[in-house]
Design a protein around this nucleic acid. Structure first.
Lengths: 192, 192
DNA sequence: TACTCTAGAGAACGCGCGTTCTCCACCGCC
DNA sequence: GGCGGTGGAGAACGCGCGTTCTCTAGAGTA
């Protein structure tokens, strides 16, 4: 049996960190808990990552990639712009149903650390800006005015926090219905 | 000079706790920082409150009362149901502009502590449920269908997180515009 | 003036944090 | 068989946490 590569171990660590941080928050999870969950000794952890904040940053980057692919997979399921936008809320509904759903990691981390961790705050801000830009692209594809995109993004944000706190997935349906109304009105029937 | 009453000291402590927790989060603020900010000795703190969690709970209760009065003051400024609902988003815009705005305390605290503090999670859930119920009342007053209220609440939630992370108050305007569209469509012109 | 009682200042306590260091078992190599 | 070196297990370190305890200065009373 060969020794695992650094990258393989890094992945194990980040998988464990993702699970723990999402379940309990950042500050509540110590390095020793991460060692226990990942099975990687403390010494090796600090050979692979310079500090805890770097691990958090990597977890956020991986979550950003995961989110992006979820969005892209969702929009890829529909050909028409209107349905491509709505597919995002269907994706949210599926996500909210997962057992370990505890809200958006970016919102939670920002709420916990705020501006006290500027590096992380910047990653969070960039993630949200990236999503808003993607929604804007999809809205432009649909021929909708520029004012629609931020409204749809706010619906997605609100659905995430509402679902997390309420512990139900109803918010996804409500957000989808609102989005449908806004999109339909923005496309074509500008004045009833 | 008479010695201050217990209630007066409690208020001083809760004022300080509110400032600190909102600025830095719950776990990042120790009891010693609270002692320094409030000027109340540690011994007295523990005479007035049984534990830190009780202080956090009180801070949340006060924030709930503050939020409720902000909402009621806002809706009281307008006579017509449509404008009463929209006044909530105007209130949000003013709130986002405050220097110490760092997002919704309830969302932030839930993100930080999650289900790890069941008492606090219940307070948070109850707060959000209360707001949703109030929006539902206002929607009913306007004669709108029941599906409108959760959509408007989700817009308010999304605006708060979006504004906090972006550091701007634009989200309030976007949410207001979306709310206006949804309300107008729900009232009367059900089918274009 | 002596004495009691209160309350404030801060040390103490046990623990857990992020990070570093020590020790030793085990590996390939001569 | 000896041996240097890698890496794992976990102790150590300095600190801060939430909470409790000790000590002392001072006010009020006989």
């Amino acid at each position: 049996m060969t020794t695992p590569t650094d990258d393989a171990v890094r992945t194990r660590v980040l998988d464990a960190a993702d699970r723990l941080y999402n379940a309990r928050g950042i500050q509540a999870v110590g390095m020793d808990a991460l060692r226990a969950e990942s099975g990687v000794p403390l010494k090796r952890l600090y050979q692979l990552f310079p500090a805890k904040e770097a691990i958090v940053a990597q977890v956020l980057h991986r979550r950003h990639d995961l989110w992006t692919s979820l969005v892209e997979d969702a929009v890829a399921t529909a050909p028409a712009p209107r349905e491509r936008l709505l597919a995002i809320y269907d994706m949210l509904a599926r996500w909210f149903d997962e057992d370990d759903f505890r809200g958006c990691v970016f919102i939670n981390t920002f709420g916990e650390l705020g501006t006290g961790a500027p590096r992380l705050a910047e990653i969070i801000r960039a993630h949200k800006a990236d999503f808003q830009a993607r929604v804007a692209e999809l809205c432009a594809d649909a021929g909708a005015p520029g004012s629609l995109a931020p409204q749809l993004a706010i619906l997605a944000e609100g659905a995430q926090t509402t679902a997390a706190i309420a512990g139900t997935n109803e918010a996804a349906g409500h957000a989808r219905a609102a989005a449908e109304t806004l999109i339909d009105l923005a496309l074509g029937r500008t004045t009833p």
